[in-house]
Simulated assay, not measured.
Amino acid sequence: MFEDQTFDEIMERMLERVPADIDKRENSVIWNALAPAAAELAQSYIWLDTVLELVFADTAQGEFLDRRAAEAGLERQPATKAVRAAKFTKGVNIPVGSRFFIDNLYFKYTRDGYLECETAGEAGNANLDGRPLLSLDTIP
């Protein structure tokens, strides 16, 4: 929203307000006096843009999203771990708790024959179909 509020743009507007009979070239006294203020203003516009992103529920993150949800009487639930079905070779007994690895994700074999991702969130929902799992444990 404030992308046009750059250091150069702010500096140009500030220098336009200085009388024409004063030296306004870079490194002149007036330029050097105005530059720190222009830099701080440009940084403030960047922060202001970030604040606007955190104010609205569709772009808020973390604590700010929790606070927006609380305004509507909602409480954000923590991320859950993905649970996936896996096919194993017939006759191979997989011990409960056996760990597997694929694409920087670790999975644990559960009682009901599924794999539970050790990482909570959407990472465990990646398309891994047809790709072999690497066992981290010795399975006879």
Rank of each mutant, 00 (worst) to 15 (best):
A86R: 01
T50V: 08
K87S: 03
K90A: 02
V92F: 12
Q77D: 04
E63A: 06
I102F: 00
R99K: 15
A42V: 00
Y45A: 13
R68F: 06
R76D: 05
F56N: 12
K90R: 10
Q61S: 10
E75F: 12
R99D: 14
K90L: 02
A82Y: 01
R68G: 04
E63Q: 04
A85I: 09
A69G: 03
A86H: 04
V96Y: 05
R68Q: 05
A85R: 14
R76W: 03
R67A: 07
E71Y: 10
L74C: 12
D58S: 06
P95A: 07
R99N: 15
T50N: 10
K81W: 05
F100V: 11
R67Y: 09
Q43I: 02
L74G: 13
A57Y: 09
A60R: 03
A70T: 12
D58L: 14
K90Q: 04
W47G: 07
D58C: 11
L48I: 05
V55Q: 13
Q77I: 11
L52H: 03
K90F: 05
W47C: 08
S44T: 15
T89E: 15
I94N: 14
I94L: 09
P78N: 10
V96M: 05
R84A: 00
E53S: 15
A42C: 07
A79R: 08
W47Q: 05
K87T: 12
E53T: 08
P95W: 14
I94D: 05
F56C: 15
V51M: 13
T50D: 00
Y45E: 08
F88H: 00
R99E: 12
A70L: 11
S44L: 15
V83A: 11
R68V: 03
A86K: 08
G62I: 11
V55M: 15
R84P: 01
K81F: 02
V55F: 01
V51P: 08
N93E: 11
K90E: 13
Y45W: 15
I46Y: 14
R84M: 03
F56R: 14
L74N: 13
G62T: 11
G91A: 04
G62A: 14
N93V: 15
T50M: 05
A57V: 13
G62L: 15
R84L: 01
F64C: 09
F64E: 14
G97R: 07
P78V: 06
A86V: 02
E53V: 04
K90W: 00
A42E: 05
R76C: 02
A72V: 06
G97T: 13
P78K: 15
E63F: 03
R67S: 05
D49W: 09
A85W: 10
D49P: 06
G97D: 01
G73K: 10
E63R: 04
N93W: 08
W47R: 11
F101E: 11
D58G: 06
V55T: 15
A70S: 01
E71R: 04
L54P: 02
A60S: 07
L65I: 08
I94Q: 01
A70G: 07
G73R: 13
R76H: 05
V92K: 15
K81M: 01
F88T: 03
A82I: 01
I102D: 04
E53A: 12
D66W: 08
R99V: 07
D66A: 03
A86W: 02
F100L: 08
L54D: 12
V55L: 00
